[in-house]
Write a protein that binds this DNA or RNA. Structure first.
Lengths: 114, 114
DNA sequence: CATACCCATCGACGATTGTGGATGGATTCG
DNA sequence: CGAATCCATCCACAATCGTCGATGGGTATG
């Protein structure tokens, strides 16, 4: 990647413009990053990604060294952002990666996990 | 992507194993996500990515609607994680994307920004 | 029906984060 | 040298976050 050099001359008190960055994009992308900015949630997402199958909440509760309310809280956050969806089966609730994830989101996850 | 079906039978009180997810990976990736989990820092990174050239801190201070200490604080965080590096030129300090970013990090940014 | 299990929600707590005012070092210009 | 500009650091404050105990609803088993 070609990187331009530093500008040779510059006036004091005069600043240059920045490349256009859409504020809506920044806000939305930050929300996605926030959802992924925790080791527990990242482990959950990676587990679902690798398993290629729905996983019961109880398996996370048993497998991760955290209390049941904490596990539930993290999964709720992932669901709220739209990364996962759930399905009830008897007394168990299974979570899976959302079927129609945004292509960008899916590619980001692929890069992060694989 | 083929997604397996839900298990038909399940015993109460018996939980299944989870796919192996490396704890070090989760921790490190979470740190990267945390660094990107803010609209201001995301805007900074996208600006540097698009500009393909070093940008002076003063340009961020002038362009973003935040105080100078806040801008400095955000950029310090990006530098601490190793996403950007800086170069001093007179009274100005220029920041640019780190030259030898981890390939994974670079690809994630490419997916997020482009 | 009574018990056991699964899970979401609530409330509380300490820890972390985003923000900006004040300060001071560094550098350049007149 | 004195003034102005650029920038990092320190300090304080409100807001958000991660965590867990307690609680209660829902569901299956005996």
């Amino acid at each position: 990647m070609a990187v331009k050099a530093l500008p040779m001359v510059r006036q004091r008190g005069v600043c240059c413009g920045l490349p256009d960055v859409d504020a809506t994009w920044a806000s939305g992308t930050a929300d996605l990053m926030k959802a992924l900015a925790d080791p527990t949630r990242l482990t959950m997402i990676a587990s679902l990604w690798k398993a290629k199958a729905p996983i019961c909440i109880c398996d996370f509760t048993a497998g991760l060294a955290l209390s049941q309310p904490t596990i539930s809280h993290h999964m709720a956050k992932l669901k709220e952002i739209g990364l996962v969806e759930s399905e009830k089966r008897g007394i168990w609730i299974y979570y899976r990666l959302r079927a129609n994830l945004a292509p960008t989101t899916r590619r980001v996850l692929a890069q992060l996990i694989s």
